[in-house]
Write a protein that binds this DNA or RNA. Sequence first.
DNA 1: TACTGACTGTCAATTTGTTTACACTTGGCC
DNA 2: GGCCAAGTGTAAACAAATTGACAGTCAGTA
Lengths: 231, 231
Amino acid sequence: MNDVLSVIETCPLLEGLPGPAKLTLAEQARNRAYGAGEIIYPPGALQSSLCIIAHGRVRICASNIAGREAILAILDVGAWFGDTVFSPGMPRVFGATAHEDCQVFEIQGEVLRATLRDNPEAYPVALDQVSRRLWSAMSVIQDDVLRGTEARIGRRLLFLAQMHNHSGQDGNVAVSFALTRELLANMMGMTRQGVHRVLKNIEAQGLIEFAYGRVTISDPERLSQYVDRLD
Amino acid sequence: MNDVLSVIETCPLLEGLPGPAKLTLAEQARNRAYGAGEIIYPPGALQSSLCIIAHGRVRICASNIAGREAILAILDVGAWFGDTVFSPGMPRVFGATAHEDCQVFEIQGEVLRATLRDNPEAYPVALDQVSRRLWSAMSVIQDDVLRGTEARIGRRLLFLAQMHNHSGQDGNVAVSFALTRELLANMMGMTRQGVHRVLKNIEAQGLIEFAYGRVTISDPERLSQYVDRLD
DNA sequence: TACTGACTGTCAATTTGTTTACACTTGGCC
DNA sequence: GGCCAAGTGTAAACAAATTGACAGTCAGTA
C-alpha cells in the first residue's frame, strides 16, 4: 500500500476510473511526507486538491478560539480527504493534520476534474462516495442534536468498532481497539472527565470494558440495543 | 415555478443536463401533493428518489424517542431533497414533511441515474452540488461541537438571513424574516426557553430585534463580527 | 367583537456537563 | 531498573441549559 499507483488503484473514490487514467493520475500526483502533528492544511484553506493516505493516519479537525479541538475523524491508509475538490472555490471546513508520521499523495483539483471529464464512467462511483460522506455527516448531526451523551458515545463506539472490524464478522463477537478517552472526548465535543463518567456508566451495564488507551465492546449487538433504547 | 418542466429546468442540481434530457425527466416525474404536516417520507426510508419542490415548503427533520424534533432545514420552492439517490440502498437519515401545503415532483432513482449516465456532461454540476451539501453539513457539525449556544444561534440567524436575501445586497442592510422561536429551537436542538434567553442577550447588544414570529437582524455585518469573537 | 389556537415571556427547581485541582497509572525509552 | 511524558480516576464547586408551570400576547376567524 505504499507506491502511488497501488494507493490510487484501491481508493474507493476513484474506483470507477479505467486503469490508464489511474496511471496518468499517479504520474501527476504529488508525494508529500508529514511528521506527526504537522498541519497538512488548516481549516479555511482555499486550495482545491484531493489527498489520499499512503502511510500513517490523518486527523480531520478544527479548533475554536478557546483552543478546544474538535476531531471529525481519524483516517487510515487508503482513505481520501479534501472532498471540496468537487466544489472549487469553497474553503475547507475542517483542517487536516498528520496524526502520526505519514505520507500523502496529493492530486490537484484541476487534474482530477479533467480526468473525470475524460472518463465519465467514473462519475457514478465518485458521486456515490461523496453522497455517502454526506450521509455520514447527516447521521452525526442527527446524533448531536437529538441524543444525550450516553447514546452519542455508544453509537460512536459502535461506529469505530465497525471501522476497525474490516474482517466482516459482526454481532456478538467482542471488538477491541485503541482509543484514549482524551481522543474520544475531542471527537464528541466533550471533556475527558465527562466521557469518563459516561463510559463508567456503560461499563456498569456490562456492555464495555476499558483499559489504558483501549476500549473493548464486549457484545456489540447488545450495546446497539441498549443505545437504541436511549433518546 | 409550477409546472414540471420549469421546476426541473431551474433546479441547480440538474443544471448541467441538456434541454431534451430535462424534458424526458419531466415526463417521467411523478407529481405529488401533500397537506401541511403530511409525511413525505420518514427517517430511515429505503426508497431512492429525488424530490424537487414545486410549491410550498418542506421540512427536513427527525425525532427521538422522547418526541423531540430536530429540524435540519426548511426548503423552499426550487430546492431538491433526497440526496441519497446517489447512494442507492442507503436509508434516508432525516425524513421529509410538508411544512405547509405543497407540491413535489418525484423522480425515481433509476430514472435519474440513467439520465445522468446518458448525459455525463451533467455530472460535474451534480457532484458540485452534493459536495456543497456536504460542506454545509460539515459546517453545522463544526458549529455544534465547537461553539456555544450564542455563537451557534448567531451564525444560524446569519445563514437564514442569507437564504432570505436572494436580492444579493449584503453587509449593513437590515434583514427581516419570519421565524418563530419554537422553530429556531428545534433547528438548534434547544428548548424554546433557552433560545429566548440567548436571543435576548444578542438583542441587548443591539444586534437584532424580534417580534411575534419574526426576527430582524439590524446590522448583519456587525452581528457577524460579534459572533466571530465568541467561541 | 369575542373566540381560539399558536406562539411567547418568565422564573424557580433540577439536571447535566464543565472547570479546577491533584494524585495516580501506564508503557516506552535511556 | 528507573525516568518521564502521556494518559487516567476522582471529586467538589461551578456554569449552563432543560424542565415544568403559568400567565400573557398575537393574528386569524366566526
